[in-house]
Design a protein around this nucleic acid. Sequence first.
DNA 1: CCATCAGATGTTTACGTAAACATAACAGGC
DNA 2: GCCTGTTATGTTTACGTAAACATCTGATGG
Lengths: 329, 329
Amino acid sequence: MADVARLAGVSSQTVSRVSNGYAGVNEETRQQVLAAMRELGYRPNSAARALKRGEFRTIGVITFGLSTTGNVRTLEAIATSAAHEGYAVTLLPVAVPTQDEVRGAFSRLGELAVDAVIVILEVHLLDAMTLSLPPHIKVVVADSDAGDRYTVVDTDQAGGSRDAVRYLLDLGHDTVWHLAGPEESFAAQRRADAWRAELTGAGRAAPPPVRGDWSAESGYRAGLELAARPDCTAVFAANDQMALGLLRALHERGRHVPGDVSVIGFDDIPEAGSFLPPLTTVHQDFAEVGRRCVEGVLRQMGQDAPEHGTTLVPTRLVVRDSTAGPRRP
Amino acid sequence: MADVARLAGVSSQTVSRVSNGYAGVNEETRQQVLAAMRELGYRPNSAARALKRGEFRTIGVITFGLSTTGNVRTLEAIATSAAHEGYAVTLLPVAVPTQDEVRGAFSRLGELAVDAVIVILEVHLLDAMTLSLPPHIKVVVADSDAGDRYTVVDTDQAGGSRDAVRYLLDLGHDTVWHLAGPEESFAAQRRADAWRAELTGAGRAAPPPVRGDWSAESGYRAGLELAARPDCTAVFAANDQMALGLLRALHERGRHVPGDVSVIGFDDIPEAGSFLPPLTTVHQDFAEVGRRCVEGVLRQMGQDAPEHGTTLVPTRLVVRDSTAGPRRP
DNA sequence: CCATCAGATGTTTACGTAAACATAACAGGC
DNA sequence: GCCTGTTATGTTTACGTAAACATCTGATGG
């Protein structure tokens, strides 16, 4: 900066003003400074800036694995929104979802150049580490429940699930089976609860849910069980990957979809429309979730006190070819 | 830091020494300083550190969309390896893959707190922007060709493709059709070239390739074309998503897989084993690619001059149920 | 018994920037 | 003609850290 100032024949402060787009700089001077910057290939040093301004213009994102579609799409939206607001995004991967690992991520975070954090993690992993966060850092939690402690942004898991169940009931099925996600998952929990609530509300008996771990493979195994039950004519799978495995199992066992069994998934991954048959599923607006996370974080940065409360992003049922009315004898 | 020093009754320099794990500090003093740190909730300020040390311990990753499986898995591996080496990862998403967008990302990068960059992008988007990078920043390019200018880490696209084609030929097919990726993609190009080379090498005629855009939907459309050709008994799809669409098209047209048509994909996405039928595919070791990217970047940071040259990560053919010998009349 | 040296700690300084304050030049009003 | 206010620019300082250098203490050996 000093070099630029010297070359342009001005003070370093004027260079700073130009570099920050300050108003009160003579146009002629401004051009000279800009020319000097170009000539010397000047780049403002962001460390010095951060030091001086006391903020990094960076948001940290803690997430467990980028393996699940949802996390990735949310992350992408976060990165895009953040970039749009002039913020960078720093990634904090948590290798294994244990308390220790999460604690480690949070403590690394403590010495990281970050103004705020967005957490995409199951809440039960989050409990212990609240304290270890530097107090001025703002937090938003995605896809979890902690509305009493943090700002939370989440897909309307319950609404989407109820829509799915109701759609199947409206088609004439007596009841709807559920291929649930892993027990530890809050999202899985919510989807299962809503499924049960909707059935109960309609006066139907809820069959025992079958549990998977989100993977297509686990959906296949669960599907083999379900295929063996002739009274199973409709299944609500907690995500599309498991639905894929389910479709394979049903196919192998000669149960036709949607003739014999209707299947609905959750997420609407890009491939869902190319399954055999194309999958009816609950569309999640991950982009919106990401956007609102960034929004929440920025809003908090404008204030002094943290917020709490939950924002729900609505879902939409996408009807394709894996659902039909039951075959009546 | 000054507060900690005061409370512990030492100089700030000693605090710095403790905070950096320097050897020559009396154990007793050390404990006092640590106690003071705890009491005051001291966190080293990373901006000041970066300013003083002249490095950020951060790697930037420029990538177009996180939509494609490969990019994400590579990114994940990069983040994990980097964390392991004490580096953070900053994400620079490129919204639309145009020269302008990429140029924008690179210029944002210029003022970003980053020591090195890993670029996961098709090279043809990269050409113009070489200059705009601050000279001291190290670059590694993944999944692209620029071995003459940068360090490149890539999957052995050619090897994997040749394996796939040879496997199909060995099963007895006369030739292998190709469902190619988009023209602009370097990876697609390489896979197509290798496919053609292997066929030619075996003295077979290469049928005209059908082009998709990586999406399952495009694979479906291409599949409808291929299904109409009775002489098509084996297809090598440039990725698993397109293979999925292809399977659907073949199924709809009553062409049995693998009875009538054999299909091989590329990537080995987690769902590939749950396709109908489970997909034979070329496994890519994304984790290894990511690891080597980080390694390459760190190696360069130890040196003054940039490197160039290409590292290839081998692939592995995973045989499942979508391939078989041709049905001989 | 003193020179020498190693270990432990303190002092000074600089990293690059921008806020706060200071200065200079000039225009307009009385 | 002088005071006031505005605009453009310069000077000083502090952000939090760590390298370089300085100092102090006590031990060792000739």
